[in-house]
Design a binder for these strands. Structure first.
Lengths: 188, 188
DNA sequence: CTGATCATGTAATTCGTTACATGATTCC
DNA sequence: GGAATCATGTAACGAATTACATGATCAG
């Protein structure tokens, strides 16, 4: 019974409480999205598959005239989640970073053009860092009130990671400025 | 004429010199792989597409009885590459990290189990860091001899990034050890 | 002579995104 | 009354991996 990684996003979210597919997607968008994204096109079919496998149990929960279906973990689902969490299997690590890719090939660029690319890349990472920082108060509250410490720890890591990349861009940006105008740098 | 990002990996590699599909793949595996991977299943069809678009030019270059086809950039290909390198479009940034995903959901785990996961994740990042360090001498040589500075810079970033994540794991690991055995920690 | 490497491709499959279709409810 | 949000799904498409098929050459 080999499950895709995205199945565990769903199982994990369901352990935190009964949820609809829509709610799972909303949660993912403000939490795991930055290191594991998921779209409706994955979540709804995956919920159906997990139900057929007996790992989750769905229940109609219409609210007014609004059709609604909430899911919860079954005992099997709980076990599958724990097995994955404690598994020693090599972790799936994947990074696709267009900015670093451009950097790799940018020897042919003029220093000014390269500096502009560093700036854009830095700004993009700074924006993500700010988005994550905006979420922090809510995560800190959840850590306090519901004892969910790890989501906050992971969020802090996410912020540190974004800043780490942004700092590297800033250093590269400065280096370009110095090599492009060494005389001006000496004067200052 | 919208090109996929992987097309630029090919164009970028071809700017460094005439290459076969096989050589491009080998190069990717020791350089861009860590932030932009590509497989034969992408490279060969993409080369054919780029040739039809007039961005690369293929030429038979059999070596003995070995069928071989080398490619080089056309003027259009060179322009497409530079346009991409200097484009201000938002960068494609994608991260899928199973270790962080597990961390996010690991509140329910025992501290010892969590510590074991930190250790595995740290070791995995340390292994990648070592792989990258093994490549460094070659990249440093290329930087010196052929003036290709950026691949070395990017490699150094890759190593720093792997170590950054490994360090975070190590800190988390220590924190688990302290919370699991605070008395032992005080004694030592 | 045998295994590693060079070399090119295709086919099947998986994974994931985006857009579309549909409709109710809630807030302003 | 209209826009935003809640809610569920499907279809088309795209991106990428893996496995397969084929065959030559080179190093030991």
């Amino acid at each position: 019974m080999e499950l895709g990684k995205t199945a565990y996003v769903i199982l994990g979210m369901l352990r935190l409480g009964r949820r609809t597919g829509y709610e799972i997607k909303s949660l993912v968008d403000v939490s795991t999205r930055f290191f594991w994204a998921a779209s409706y096109g994955q979540i709804y079919p995956e919920l159906a598959r997990l139900e057929k496998l007996g790992l989750v149990r769905g229940r109609r929960a219409d609210s007014g005239g609004r059709r609604r279906k909430t899911y919860e973990l079954t005992a099997d689902g709980e076990r599958a989640l724990d097995d994955w969490l404690t598994s020693p299997a090599p972790l799936h690590l994947e990074l696709r970073h267009e900015g670093v890719l451009k950097a790799f090939f940018s020897d042919a660029l003029a220093p000014g053009e390269r500096a502009a690319q560093w700036r854009r890349m830095r700004e993009q990472h700074e924006r993500v860092a700010q988005q994550l920082q905006a979420i922090e108060p809510g995560a800190a509250e959840a850590a306090d009130e519901r004892g969910e410490r790890m989501p906050l720890k992971v969020l802090e890591f996410g912020i540190a990671y974004q800043q780490f990349v942004a700092d590297w861009c800033a250093r590269m940006e400065r280096a370009e400025a110095e090599s492009a105008a060494p005389v001006a740098a000496e004067r200052s």
